[in-house]
């Protein structure tokens, strides 16, 4: 019979994948939220939008989803959050050098003009992180004010 060997191969492949997935769970991964040492003070609508759309990747107040515990997704999510925090971390905002803060503000202003921030895959998993036009405008206006203030002191 033609199908029997195929079925056997599929069953073996399924077992192999299951073993790999189970073994992957044994690789230790740290999903941590370090202390908040200098949170950015974004008020009103801008603050709400910032917390709702940006804080999971760009702060130490990440809301880790349940699937962040499951490898190999956990590896990808942990790496993304690590890079996100290193690029800009609103929980340590006040510890940045003034020059660093200014250039991060400029990048944030530029990112807000792009539709791909927050990233598409993240918006798909977190509908609450989809910025409305009004929220994007509020964030842009607030950050533009911060850039102006920071530039004035440089």
């Amino acid at each position: 019979m033609g199908l029997a060997p195929v079925g056997k191969y599929l069953a073996r492949a399924g077992v192999a994948i299951a073993i790999v997935l189970i073994a992957a769970q044994l690789v230790p991964i740290r999903l941590s939220n370090p202390p908040v040492t200098g949170d950015i003070a974004a008020p009103g609508e801008a603050g709400i939008a910032l917390r709702g759309a940006c804080y999971d990747c760009h702060s130490n107040q990440t809301g880790w989803p349940w699937y962040a515990q499951a490898a190999p997704l956990s590896w990808w999510i942990a790496r993304d959050v690590e890079y996100g925090r290193r690029q800009v971390n609103f929980s340590i905002w006040n510890t940045y050098y003034p020059a660093t803060r200014l250039r991060k503000l400029e990048w944030i202003g530029r990112s807000l003009k792009q539709p791909d921030m927050p990233p598409k895959w993240y918006r798909a998993m977190h509908p609450g992180a989809r910025l409305t036009k009004a929220q994007r405008a509020a964030l842009s206006a607030w950050f533009a004010g911060q850039v102006a203030a920071a530039s004035a002191t440089q």
């Binding site: 890079y83 290193r86 690029q87 250039r103 400029e106 990048w107 530029r110």
Partner: peptide, 15 residues
């Protein structure tokens, strides 16, 4: 250490 080469003026950032 992992670094990110970045330039706002060149509009480039790469890990």
């Amino acid at each position: 250490k992992t670094a990110e080469f970045e330039s706002f003026l060149l509009n480039r950032e790469k890990v």
